[in-house]
């Protein structure tokens, strides 16, 4: 029986939107092809730098203002996905990868073309990759099962019937606003709650034990080291608070409620070893004590 500390935990999140998309029009004057920057009418906060956005036309025409070099197929299509950088004036630059979109520079920047007509578009936040939420110092997750009282006349003991499951919680992280490419700062969640048009949802993985975490004390099997366990669910940010104290770190506190199913998942990793159908390892001819490994991705 092992004893685990909180440092075996971790929070990962995916940027997403559960509550719809935004339709607008890109006018010829909205596209600056020399700066590879464009814009359309959207409320401040609708798009956040680093979002993975699907842009598509609503009239079936091509997205002409995105140069053919910006498409994976090398030709202009009616719909495409890019990471975005949003500047202070609401201008948008498209990037082919997340890290470059955070910098807003020329690396990874998708070229734009001038257009001669209005293009009606729809913008939607797409699921992207899980990224670790940086500098989390604590989190708490509560799952509740509602029960309905079905006690009837003549019963001597209360009877309950299982009803709906709900979840809520909060997390505390040291505040930072700089995204390190693979790590989201808690500032992102503070931006989410202000996003009015498409809601403040995200998909989260709240780890109880991450891969390669070992117990702080007690006994454990070496095969457990690669195991990981986590809660996974969609959530909506319902509250954010920042605390300032002259002698303390600035921390952000985020409160959220789960929406949809809550899953407690476990990955009992076989140590990255390729297995036979029987579950046995595939041993090497050269060394009977060694087995075939999977290539790390």
């Amino acid at each position: 029986m092992g004893v685990y500390l909180g440092n075996a935990g971790q929070v990962e999140l995916v940027r997403k939107s559960l509550e719809g998309d935004k339709e607008s029009v890109v006018n010829p004057s909205d596209v600056n092809s020399s700066a590879n920057r464009f814009s359309f009418d959207f409320d401040e906060g609708f798009l956040i730098t680093g979002d993975f956005v699907e842009l598509s036309t609503t009239d079936g025409t091509d997205l002409d203002f995105v140069d053919a070099s910006g498409w994976g197929v090398g030709a202009v299509q009616t719909s495409g996905n890019w990471y975005i950088f949003v500047d202070q004036l609401g201008g948008i630059k498209l990037y082919d990868n997340f890290a470059d979109s955070l910098d807003g520079g020329t690396s990874g920047l998708v070229s734009l073309n001038t257009i001669a007509r209005d293009i009606p578009i729809r913008a939607r936040i797409r699921d992207a990759d899980y990224r670790v939420l940086a500098a989390v110092s604590e989190y708490e997750l509560n799952t509740n099962r509602e029960v309905v009282d079905i006690t009837t006349l003549s019963d001597e003991h209360r009877q309950q019937y299982s009803s709906l499951i709900s979840g809520s919680g909060n997390l505390v992280a040291h505040w930072d606003y700089v995204n390190e490419g693979t790590r989201e700062p808690v500032h992102y969640l503070m931006q989410l709650i202000l996003r009015t048009e498409i809601g403040s949802s995200f998909r989260g993985k709240f780890y109880v034990k991450t891969e390669n975490a070992t117990p702080a004390a007690g006994s454990y099997n070496q095969a457990q080291v690669n195991d990981s366990l986590w809660w996974e669910f969609d959530a909506i940010v319902t509250g954010s608070a920042v605390s300032f104290s002259s002698s303390d770190l600035i921390t952000g506190r985020i409160e959220f409620v789960a929406t949809g199913p809550i899953r407690l998942k476990a990955q009992v990793a076989p140590g990255d070893k390729m297995l036979q159908e029987s579950g046995d390892e595939i041993l090497l001819d050269q060394d009977a004590t060694s087995s075939l490994l999977l290539e790390a991705t």
Binding site: I150, T151, T152, L153, S154, D155, E156
Partner: peptide
């Protein structure tokens, strides 16, 4: 209390009655 309550319809004690008045 409710533990003592019953409702009969046509002489048959009803299942799962939560209240009567």
């Amino acid at each position: 209390t409710g533990r003592d309550g019953r409702l009969l319809i046509g002489g048959t004690e009803q299942l799962k009655v939560t209240n009567w008045s």
